[in-house]
């Protein structure tokens, strides 16, 4: 006996197997992201007053990605409709669009990550804070005993304890494109302060107490930001692989069993729409609030 209802719906439940499978899977995904969103709420509500960042993320890029993802959700739907009406050419076109949009989304995300990666906060010896994007650093190469300037930082953090020496390179000074503020709290709400003077600031090694980039270790906002968007990006990646497979080698099934293939497109589409749904909440929660 073979497994029934692989492509036809079962009369009493009205769905075929894979559809119930994907919805069950999505239910568990809801709980997965639900756990993380709960964590977000808890961390945020529990944060000491004035210690939750606002306006740290680029709303323009976030909006762009929102629209890209919405568009890709639409093209997946159209790809499924194309299969439904038997127009395979249209299917190929729309799914190619989905793939291209997914990759664009990931590129934008990567750019945003990189932007945080090269953003440093330096705690100065006098208690002030320098903050900005990394421009360059001057080192002494202790082996050759000469100074040199580099445009990427060696390591992600610097602290007095480690002495600023890595692989025989001793830090002399760091230059940031940014500013110096009196209190770390002044860095929290970038929305409130509209006009901030930016410029090159060069800081001598002796002035640096602690230097750290905006990685997930920097504070809980960045931690949850990287975790949530990273997990979401993994979903995008996974979805792209599935969609790429169905668009490429997997399309052979169209010839053999078009109904089942159409179901596959529907099921993978449901997953894709779910990934879009997650983003619909991620965007306001992380970028706007």
């Amino acid at each position: 006996m073979e497994i029934p209802y692989t492509s036809k719906p079962r009369p009493d439940t009205g769905v075929y197997n894979a559809k119930i499978g994907i919805w069950l899977f999505l239910a568990s995904e809801v709980m997965l992201f639900g756990g993380l969103f709960s964590a977000y709420v808890l961390l945020r509500v529990g944060a000491a007053p004035g210690e939750w960042p606002h306006g740290w993320l680029n709303v323009g890029l976030g909006t762009l990605n929102t629209l890209i993802l919405a568009l890709s959700a639409i093209t997946t739907l159209l790809a499924w409709v194309a299969c439904k009406v038997g127009q395979f050419g249209k299917f190929k076109f729309f799914h190619a669009c989905t793939l291209a949009l997914a990759l664009t989304f990931l590129c934008v995300k990567m750019y945003e990550y990189h932007d945080k990666w090269i953003h440093y906060e330096i705690k100065l010896v006098d208690g002030k804070f320098a903050d900005g994007h990394f421009e360059g650093a001057v080192y002494v190469d202790k082996a050759a005993n000469k100074e040199l300037e580099e445009h990427s930082f060696r390591g992600m953090a610097f602290s007095e304890v480690s002495g600023g020496v890595t692989n025989n390179y001793e830090l002399v000074s760091v230059t940031l494109e940014g500013r110096i503020v009196a209190d770390e709290k002044d860095l929290m709400d970038l929305r409130a302060q509209k006009h901030i003077e930016h410029g090159k600031v060069t800081i001598e090694r002796s002035q640096i107490k602690h230097m750290e980039n905006y990685g997930p270790w920097h504070n809980t906002f960045l931690a949850i930001y990287f975790t949530l968007t990273g997990l979401h990006a993994l979903h995008i990646l996974g979805g792209s692989i599935v969609i790429g497979y169905l668009w490429g080698p997997g399309r052979k099934m169209w010839k053999k069993d078009p109904e089942r293939f159409t179901n596959r497109i529907e099921v993978s589409g449901l997953f894709w729409h779910f990934v879009d749904l997650v983003w619909i909440f991620l965007f306001p929660v992380l970028y706007l609030m």
Partner: peptide, 9 residues
């Protein structure tokens, strides 16, 4: 989300 879930899904 309602629009996406309701109409696309």
């Amino acid at each position: 989300a309602f629009v996406v879930a309701g109409y696309l899904m």
